[in-house]
Design a protein around this nucleic acid. Sequence first.
DNA 1: GTGAATGCAAACTCTTTGCATGACT
DNA 2: AGTCATGCAAAGAGTTTGCATTCAC
Lengths: 133, 133
Amino acid sequence: MRRAGHNRGAARDALIDLFAIEGCALTPQEIEGRLSSDRPVARASVYRALELLHSLRLITRIDVGDGVARYERAHLDEGHDHHHHHLLCGACGELVGFEDEHLEAVIHELSGRHGFRISEHEVTLRGTCPSCR
Amino acid sequence: MRRAGHNRGAARDALIDLFAIEGCALTPQEIEGRLSSDRPVARASVYRALELLHSLRLITRIDVGDGVARYERAHLDEGHDHHHHHLLCGACGELVGFEDEHLEAVIHELSGRHGFRISEHEVTLRGTCPSCR
DNA sequence: GTGAATGCAAACTCTTTGCATGACT
DNA sequence: AGTCATGCAAAGAGTTTGCATTCAC
């Protein structure tokens, strides 16, 4: 499916496998670490593969404001849309995903009202997780 | 009002003045540029003042995913809450703010349902602005 | 006068790029 | 064989930190 003019290679394969397993957001560092325990992958290859997958809309980039990028697979499976957003704990840094169809509905409705043609949206809630309260 | 144990200085004064004028998100680079046309302010002082104001909750940090931080004054005035979110044009990079009380209501309602105590939230819509269509 | 804020410059981290090597088709 | 992905190392950008100086109280 990604034979949209791109070959496969060790780094890309490994990245795809990782995203198939891991559902939520990962930083490039985490990705490099996980991959290197199996077969070492150069940092540059991680970034290049991430860029490619992102441009093909197979992964989503998330930025919670700590200066590092995070990526997770795009949840665009036909039928049930597993699109989700994130809760970030300011104390321990835990990042968890959540879905809310009401929120999606409001954003979708909103999208028609500002002259922009909206293609993506991102919602981040910050606070304190149950364990850190 | 920010005599919460902090003195004033040229850099902080200038930053506060700037945020009083400029309502929407600015990057540290933009801030340094604007301030330097008046009285030069060192980059380090910009970052330090931003950190301070942010820790005092007087400004908000926004990250739209392009690798640079943005800050704008916190719209927490009593009475009318001018809290807003952002539309980002992927083509020209323009960033504009919008308010939507319906969206706020949904997020507020949502906040009680995940065990987290939510203190902030951030919504970014990405797409194409009218001029870039 | 004392302590805190500022400026300068160097250090650090994350990310990107150039170029040669190696792999996939 | 030819093309494209990978690895390594160096470059680039944004941000942070150390230390001496200057300013605010």
